[in-house]
Structures are given as C-alpha cells and as structure tokens.
Nucleic acid binder design. Structure first.
Lengths: 215, 215
DNA sequence: GATCCCATCTTTCCGTTGTAAAGATGGGCC
DNA sequence: GGCCCATCTTTACAACGGAAAGATGGGATC
C-alpha cells in the first residue's frame, strides 16, 4: 500500500518501490544539499528533507541517527566537491605563481557560489566532526591542497621560508575570512557597499599573497 | 501567588516581585549571553533563557517577539563590549604602529575569549540584522575602529595608500578568518595541532600587516 | 487616598520538530 | 519455497517557538 513509485535515479534495481531502493541515503544527502543551499543549514529540518525525498522522516532517522549526522554527511560531500573544484582550477596553472593565484581565486569563488553550503561546512555544529571521521578526512584533504601549493611556491623562491603550514594558515585565514564576511553580509559598509565581490576578493587575495611572499 | 522574589541586581526598585521588575529585558539578555557562551547559540532556546531568569517563556516573548530578536539583542551587546574592549586596548598605544598591533592582538584575543558569543555576532542568522538597526550600528561602529587605525597608519607612512577600507578589509579578513577557523576547531591539522593559539595568531597578524604595509 | 489604565507577566493552546521504539515489508540467501 | 534481516512505516513523546487571552499591580489622574 505505501509503496510509492520513486524515480530510481541510479539504475540497477529491478523494483521501483520505495522499499529498499538502496539509494535513500544518497537521495537524502542530495535533497539535503539542495535545501541547505536554498535556506541555509540552521533552518533545515530532517522532516522536510525526508518529505522532499518522498519518505517518512523516520526513514531518514534510520540512515542518520541524528540531524547532526545528516548535516555532517552533507558537509562531507561539500568538502569533496570543493576539493575537486580547486584541483580542477589548478590544472590550468603554468607555474607555482599562477597555481597559487588560481587556487586563491577558485577558493573564494567556490565558497561564494556554494554560499550556504560553505557555511555549513565551516559551521560550529559541524565542528563535532571528531564524531564523523569521514568529514574530518574530507576537510583535511582540502587544506592539504593549500599547503602543497604553498610548498611549491617556497621551492620556486616565491614564498618565504619556514613551515609551509604557517604561510598556508595566513592565506587560508584571509580567504576564509573574506568569504565568511561576505556570506554573512558583513561587507555592507561605507566604502565597500556596492563594489563587486570579485574586486574585493582580489584585494584580499593580493594582500594575503604579499603578506607571505618574498619581500 | 506566582510572585517569586528575584535578585534585583540593579537597585532602584521598591518591590522585589517578578511583576514589572523593569529589568526583565536586561536580565534576559544577561542570562542569554551566559547561555550562549556555555552552549553556543544554535542550541539555546528561548524557554531555557526564560527558565534561568525565573519567568515563563512567554514573558520573554513579550520583550522579544522572536527568538531571533533575542539573539540579535545579545549580539548587539556583544559588539558594544567588544568595541569597548578594543578601544581600551588601544589606549596603551604609543604610535600608529603599536596601535595597529594592539588592535589586531586585542581583536583576536577578545574573539577567542568570547568564543561562542563572537560566533553568534557573526552568524548568518544575525545577518538579518537589517531588521535590527541597533545591531547594525553596533557592528559598524566596531569596523570603524579598524578603518581609523588603518588611516592613522597611512598618514604616518606605515600603510600603503589607497582607500583605507581596502587595507582594513584585508586585515579584518585575516583576523576574522583566523578567529573563525580557531573557534570552529579547524586548526586541528598536522603542523598546527598542539601549537599555541597566541603563536598562530601572531603569524597571521604579522602576515596581514606585511600584506598592507609599505614595501 | 481611591480609581482607573495599561504595561507587564502568566495561563493556555497549537503546530512542528528531533528522536525512540515497535511493527510491517519484501529482496536475497539457504 | 521459506526464512531472515535490512529497510521503511506507524505510533508515540517531550520540547520548542509562537499566538491569544486573561490576570496583576504601579503610577497617573482626579
């Protein structure tokens, strides 16, 4: 009776019933991601995600024991996609210098484009990610891209010496700080208001680069 | 019957009844601030704040029509206190250079000390602050401190030319980014783990300064 | 000094949420 | 062909944010 036909996105199943369709977990993360991007993670509810997926909310509860676990899964995928996006952007690089520039631009651009998803990825709730190892892995992997690019810059005499993580921390702080401020609508200030995000981002990234570059 | 005696913090009232004690609004913000610092704003509830204040939750609802309005009031006070804290720190300055340094240090130190309150102040929910003018005023006033210090730096030939807001944006992004990353527990990374926050903050602030300083 | 008004607080109520527990279902393995 | 267990549903509960209406009493008015 309850078996509602469901669009069986990824084929491979004979039946088209809601039961055991095997992709519910993925479907929930899909819909959850959409919802986060639409409304922001603080206001999304497990029940609404389940509703849009066409199942009861307790079906979601079966796959994710808590709301936080669902959010963690969404954030994890967000990190994976962002990492892929950054890697893709850097493939156009011709050297260490352009690699750093491309990485910085891509970071901010992706963060702003995925707005609310980026906010979830860096939200404090997700900070309980010690309980979600895969989230930590995905997040660490992204930071590793940064450190690698910095190391490259050091080896070609572009970036100052010292531990690469130190310079990476400076650049990351600036990029993340700018993205956060922009997403939190904190740039509606006299002197900043009305200016293009790209222009402001370029200013911050240039400042960050000169802060870690060889004088 | 219901009139519970209440500790009448700020004197000036004859009666000690819960009714009309005239400080409920302030008391709610007080308790709310405490709660935010203890648990973080995502998990605080209007009802718990009211409970700790010794009134029903609808009494809180009378003073703050929505939960968001209560959070906005808490954030507003947070900005005011932070502004005062920064001003106080800068009073020890001997020149434009030390003023900038003191401001940067004080900013990060205060942000980390007030942790969860700082997160509320910069949360996206609070970004509906167009609906809360006093919050916007308090937040803008704090940013003005930054711009002023930068302008001073420019006039004494310490900071590069151009619009002061541009350099302020670079510094702010770095400081806010570092504080956010630290508070979101994002610095638990190989190469950063175990190092003192003060040390890392100094690295970021130095980088930000050299990114806007005269070459 | 009695009376009335209205800001303030309480009582009651509603729909929604997250989570738990127990029951139904049916695909895949023996 | 029949059983088992992963998967989904039904049912239930306490807590939440918010609305509406009722109670209370301090201060203004006379």
């Amino acid at each position: 009776m309850p078996r509602k036909p469901i669009k069986n996105s990824k084929g491979g199943r004979k039946t088209v019933h809601a039961y055991h369709h095997g992709d519910l977990r993925r479907a929930l993360v899909d819909q959850g991601t959409k919802l986060v991007q639409e409304q922001g993670h603080p206001s999304i509810t497990v029940r609404e995600v389940a509703r849009r997926t066409g199942v009861t909310h307790t079906a979601a509860h079966y796959h994710f024991r808590t709301r936080e676990a669902l959010l963690a899964a969404i954030a994890t995928r967000g990190f994976e996609e962002m990492t892929a996006s950054l890697e893709s952007a850097m493939r156009a690089a011709t050297g260490a210098r352009s690699r750093l520039a491309l990485l910085g631009e891509a970071y901010v651009r992706h963060a702003l484009r995925r707005g609310r998803l980026y906010q979830l990825m860096f939200s404090a709730e997700t900070a309980t990610r010690d309980a979600h190892p895969e989230l930590r892995v995905a997040s660490d992997r992204m930071f590793a891209l940064l450190v690698d690019a910095i190391r490259d810059g050091q080896e070609t005499g572009l970036v100052r010496g010292g531990p690469p993580v130190d310079a990476a921390l400076v650049a990351w702080s600036a990029a993340h700080g700018f993205a956060s401020l922009s997403l939190e609508r904190r740039l509606m200030l006299p002197g900043l208001q009305g200016r293009e995000n790209d222009e402001l981002a370029a200013i911050v990234l240039r400042g960050a680069f000169e802060g870690i570059a060889i004088a």
